[in-house]
Structure formats: structure tokens, C-alpha cells
């Protein structure tokens, strides 16, 4: 099912590019809040995130595109005792936990309102995400890296700031990265602010 969604979005994206309709490029600064099982590993909000998003108009209400992102989560935990997966080794010390996520997705969005006006929108991104998780204790590091299926429903609003359809944009994105190398999936809510630059 996931494969068909990706293929369908790629087809839409390709046709949109050929049509040479209105396009936009977006850059966001992202703040993320861990959710679900992921928050058992790190529960502190991440203030280090960026993303870019390119969209091509399929019709005046619909765009297709792709997005890339990078979000860094980190947190210190004092005096943690943890039994490693082998069951033979127990480690105690100050833990420094890090998760770097890199989603790479195609997306589709639906818009309300008209161009050159305030436009709320909703959309969905699907694709993959590379995740690098590290736990440092003393001089050892427990490292997990994985590629996972990445699903991101999202809503946002574009507010024009000039006559060229440059917009201030605010969005909320729920990220869900499923994977099986650690005990949790990665789910987190992103609050993104940035700018949209329109072009033909």
C-alpha cells in the first residue's frame, strides 16, 4: 500500500513539473515535541530543526512536491542504570541521548482561498527517513541507525507579505517514522515557521 502511495505521488509530481504551473519553494525553522514511545527516550523539545519544501501546482487548489528536513533531539539524563540488550551487561552513568532525523518525502497539498490571499492548507508527505540514534555513557556509545517509512500529515497557513506572493508560512506537522531497530517508533509534532517564495 505504501509503495502505491509513493508511486501515485511521484506521478502527480512529474505531471505537475511538466505543466510548468505556479511553483513555490519554502524554508522553515522547526521546533519539535517528542510524542508517544519516543518521549520515553527523549522528552525534551528540540529547538534545532530546518526543512525545505518545493511544491508545483497541479491545479489552483492542489500542489505536489517534495520535502527534506533535519531535526536534532538531545537530552541529558543523570545517574541512569540500563541493562544492555545482551542481558549480560549493565551500565550506570550520565547518559547523553541524541536523535538526528532526516526525512525525504514527496507530498501533496490542498489549499483554501485564492492566490495572493491568506491561504490555509492541509497535506500529506510520505517517503522515507534516515534516523541516527546515539546514547553516550562514559566512553561508550550505543548507536542505532535506520531507514524507515515516514508519514507526515500536516496543516498550515500562508500569509502574503508582498505583491510577488512571497508569504510568511506557519505549519504544524505530525511525523511518524516506523522502524524496528529500537524499542520505539519516532513520532513527534513539528511547529514550523518560515517563508514561501513563489515563481513560475
Amino acid at each position: 500500500m505504501k509503495k502505491y502511495i509513493v508511486i501515485a505521488l511521484l506521478i502527480v509530481l512529474t505531471s505537475a513539473v511538466k505543466a510548468q504551473h505556479f511553483s513555490s519553494f519554502r524554508m522553515h525553522y522547526d521546533v519539535a515535541v517528542p510524542l508517544g514511545d519516543f518521549s520515553d527516550y527523549i522528552d525534551r523539545a528540540s529547538w534545532r530543526g530546518v526543512s525545505i519544501d518545493s511544491r508545483w501546482e497541479v491545479n489552483p487548489k492542489v500542489t505536489a512536491g517534495f520535502n527534506l528536513g533535519w531535526q536534532v533531539f538531545s537530552q541529558r539524563f543523570d545517574n541512569v542504570t540500563e541493562v544492555l540488550s545482551s542481558g549480560r551487561t549493565t551500565v550506570n552513568g550520565t547518559q547523553f541521548r541524541f536523535v538526528n532525523t532526516y526525512p525525504m518525502q514527496v507530498n501533496a497539498h490542498y489549499y483554501l482561498g485564492e492566490e495572493y490571499s491568506i491561504r490555509p492548507w492541509a497535506g500529506l508527505s510520505v517517503g522515507t527517513a534516515f534516523t541516527d540514534q546515539r546514547t553516550q555513557v562514559g566512553f561508550i556509545e550505543i548507536k542505532d541507525t535506520s531507514w524507515s517509512f515516514a508519514l507526515t500529515p500536516q496543516v498550515g497557513i500562508d500569509i502574503p507579505v508582498d505583491s510577488n506572493n512571497t508569504c510568511f508560512t506557519f505549519n504544524v506537522r505530525y511525523n511518524y517514522f516506523s522502524q524496528n531497530t529500537v524499542s520505539h517508533n519516532y513520532s513527534f509534532l513539528i511547529f514550523g515557521v518560515g517563508f514561501k517564495f513563489g515563481y513560475y
Binding site: 566512553f139 548507536k143 531507514w147 531497530t181
Partner: peptide
């Protein structure tokens, strides 16, 4: 995918 316990210098 990998799951590694690494001793870092």
C-alpha cells in the same frame, strides 16, 4: 540498518 555498541575514544 545497524545496531552497534561502540567504544569511542
Amino acid at each position: 540498518m545497524s545496531n552497534k555498541l561502540i567504544r569511542v575514544s
